[in-house]
Amino acid sequence: MIRQAWNEKIMQGVFFVAACTSVLAVAFICIFLFHNGTLALSEIGIWDFLSGTVWRPNIEIFGIFPMIVGSVYITAGAVLTGVPIGIFTAVFMAFYCPKKLYRPLKASTDILAGIPSVVYGFFGLVVIVPLIRDLGQFLGMGGNGNNILTASILLGIMILPTVISVTEASLRAVPSLYYEGAAALGATHEQCIFKVVVPAAKSGILAAAVLGMGRAVGETMAVIMVAGNQARIPSDIFQGVRTLTANVVIEMGYAADLHRDALIATGVVLFAFILIINLFLAYLSRSK
């Protein structure tokens, strides 16, 4: 009897320790990143680092403003292309989809979510890049197709599954009384959906957009394959840019000393962006 009680206690301890690992992991990630990142920040100067427009590691000039601009542009582009289409598709899934089609289509969005980012990047490289190159030449903008527009379209596709599934869930969470009430007043199917159900689900839809944004900011490999990766501030969407994520992956392989620390600091800036997005999400889910 006593031995059994001991077993219970020991295993409860084991479960507790396991539950603590995720807390520990977050703490370790924060400590290691911020500790190593601040090394470079204190040497370069936080303001020079964030607002410097020149990135030339070979002569020790480290300004990541072009990369911040690049990440912001591409994320904004992805949100502009992916979120509206995602929301409309979610409306389709929730209100229009024939019953027989629903299961296969739902499975398709799961597959869309499961496709690795390299495969998306490759698809962008061999299909979207040539298309945009031709479009650029047609419009007289030139360029080789590796640019903001291409990356935005590709990331727009990549955030679709996130936006669709979260939006659909929040649309389905709206009581059907809302729809029925509107329909009883003589509204069309579309008026019921877009004037009554969608506004009622707006906090969930906003969360979907923010989640998609988080995915777009953090995407790395696919962006490297199609965005051109030039570390300068672009003047139009047919120019290539480098994102914060790309900066880390491209140069980490051969970086040393201050250069390496500067790359880690780039990661810290990215991490700060993600934490802000997460905080906003937590706020959204609390206000619901």
Binding site: G214, G218, L270
Partner: peptide, 9 residues
């Protein structure tokens, strides 16, 4: 938080 951290981090 962990779920939202991108893989490069």
């Amino acid at each position: 938080t962990l779920a939202g951290i991108p893989s490069i981090i």
